[in-house]
Computed example of a mutant assay.
Amino acid sequence: MRFIVGLFLGVLLLGCEQRDPPALDQQLYIWQRQWTPAHEAALSGSHDDFSTLRVLALQAFPNAGWSRTRIDSRLLQADGRPLIAVIRLDGQLKSLDQDQATAQILQLLTEWQAQGLTLSGVEIDHDAGNARLPDYAEFLKHLRSALPTSLPLSITALPAWLSSPQLPTLLQTVDSSVLQVHAVSDPRRGLFDPAQALQWAKDWARVTDKPFYLALPAYGVALLADDGGAPVVESEVQLERGGERRELLADPLQLSQLGKTLRDDPPAHLAGLIWFRLPLANDRRAWSLTTLGAVARGDALNGQLGVTFSEHNGLYDIKLDNPGNLDSAWPAQITLKAQRCEGADALAGYALQQSADLLTFTRLRDGRLPAGGQRAIGWARCAHIDQGGSHVDP
């Protein structure tokens, strides 16, 4: 009898054990309109942390018509992860020609198949206003009937649609949705609000009974003043215009905390997170792949900015070093204790002040040092620079 009671208690205790919440699926958007050799390293470096690639494939612009992305099918074949083709229908389109749009999408699928690519889904990205949701739902039903029945159809969705009584009907036309919770309002208010994003996710879960994903930011933009109107937004492509730029960047620490909250207590039907966008080595307005992977995995984040020297015959090359996993802003000031310096200078981005036994580098403009990266900030010809006497002021 005591054995049976003990076994029963053991089962109860086992049922009460704290179990780690299931990991959320992590996916990536590839949003570059022209692929470059840098994509190969980015795909390779992202392979272990992100299950699926959502690739910008086709766009429709007002007046300009349709434009295809120049993908590298060889790289996608070698990568081997599931592929979802994203079709971007500009929100400023006056109307959607169902037959033309469907024909363009079917032609794209045929072209990708001819290149040896097998699709796992199609996503439509259309920032329709609430008044146009009924027409949008009709287009999606038309497209769904034309696509292979085995090919899932998803849409990018806006939080503003939560106020529309048409939303439940719209969501019934697709297999899943991707709720975009970044840069959805005036960019002057910032790219991302984690509390608002969490609330939108909870609200979305009450509207849909199908799987949904959250599209999260891993990038920055610059705002350029525009006379008498909304600011001009500069992202991965530099605009051919001058003027002061105000840089905005999604905060990895905020996103990391949101990820933990969602893992610990996910809203109903939340299937995963999709990060915008795959960072290339030369993408100065995206998180590094190291930081993005750390956030996706839920790793503790740390930036470890320091100063390193390499010396040859009294000539010191001075560098900033970031061995941590968090991209970090260039420090405002760096001071070095040095003896008997015959000459020294700063490199772009910093200015140098030199006294009898001190070299002071002062930041002239903002910049970021990627996780795991180095950046030369200056040089000095001195009898000795004290490594232990250096100081980095954030």
Score class of each variant (00 low, 15 high):
residue 331 P to Q: 04
residue 332 A to I: 05
residue 33 R to A: 09
residue 358 L to P: 01
residue 95 S to A: 15
residue 50 F to L: 05
residue 228 G to V: 02
residue 299 D to K: 04
residue 115 Q to F: 00
residue 212 F to T: 02
residue 80 G to I: 02
residue 78 A to S: 11
residue 198 L to C: 03
residue 314 G to N: 05
residue 130 N to H: 06
residue 234 E to L: 03
residue 149 T to I: 14
residue 222 A to C: 06
residue 181 V to S: 00
residue 118 T to C: 09
residue 176 S to Q: 14
residue 291 T to R: 04
residue 192 F to T: 10
residue 163 S to I: 05
residue 86 V to M: 06
residue 103 A to E: 12
residue 379 W to V: 15
residue 61 F to H: 15
residue 249 L to E: 12
residue 211 P to W: 08
residue 251 D to N: 14
residue 172 Q to P: 01
residue 138 E to N: 10
residue 312 H to P: 04
residue 187 P to R: 09
residue 23 A to H: 06
residue 63 N to W: 10
residue 73 S to Y: 08
residue 315 L to S: 09
residue 136 Y to N: 09
residue 343 G to H: 13
residue 36 T to D: 10
residue 291 T to K: 03
residue 113 Q to P: 04
residue 68 R to S: 14
residue 138 E to D: 12
residue 9 L to P: 03
residue 300 A to V: 07
residue 257 Q to P: 02
residue 139 F to I: 05
residue 320 L to Q: 03
residue 224 L to H: 05
residue 230 A to S: 10
residue 330 W to E: 03
residue 120 S to P: 09
residue 332 A to G: 10
residue 133 L to D: 04
residue 324 G to P: 08
residue 1 M to E: 09
residue 357 D to E: 13
residue 194 P to K: 11
residue 295 V to D: 05
residue 391 H to F: 12
residue 48 D to I: 01
residue 135 D to N: 13
residue 220 G to M: 06
residue 168 P to S: 02
residue 7 L to D: 05
residue 366 D to S: 15
residue 352 L to A: 10
residue 91 G to V: 12
residue 357 D to P: 05
residue 82 P to R: 06
residue 300 A to I: 07
residue 118 T to P: 06
residue 92 Q to I: 01
residue 120 S to L: 05
residue 148 P to V: 11
residue 358 L to W: 11
residue 386 D to W: 00
residue 187 P to Q: 02
residue 129 G to C: 00
residue 2 R to K: 13
residue 115 Q to T: 09
residue 301 L to G: 02
residue 89 L to E: 01
residue 93 L to Q: 04
residue 123 E to D: 13
residue 340 R to H: 10
residue 255 L to A: 08
residue 42 A to R: 04
residue 279 P to T: 01
residue 55 V to M: 07
residue 178 V to F: 10
residue 324 G to Y: 00
residue 254 Q to Y: 02
residue 135 D to Q: 15
residue 23 A to Y: 04
residue 84 I to E: 11
residue 365 R to Q: 13
residue 305 L to Y: 00
residue 114 A to G: 11
residue 296 A to D: 09
residue 228 G to M: 08
residue 216 L to G: 00
residue 89 L to W: 05
residue 107 Q to W: 11
residue 391 H to M: 12
residue 44 S to V: 15
residue 74 R to K: 11
residue 71 I to A: 07
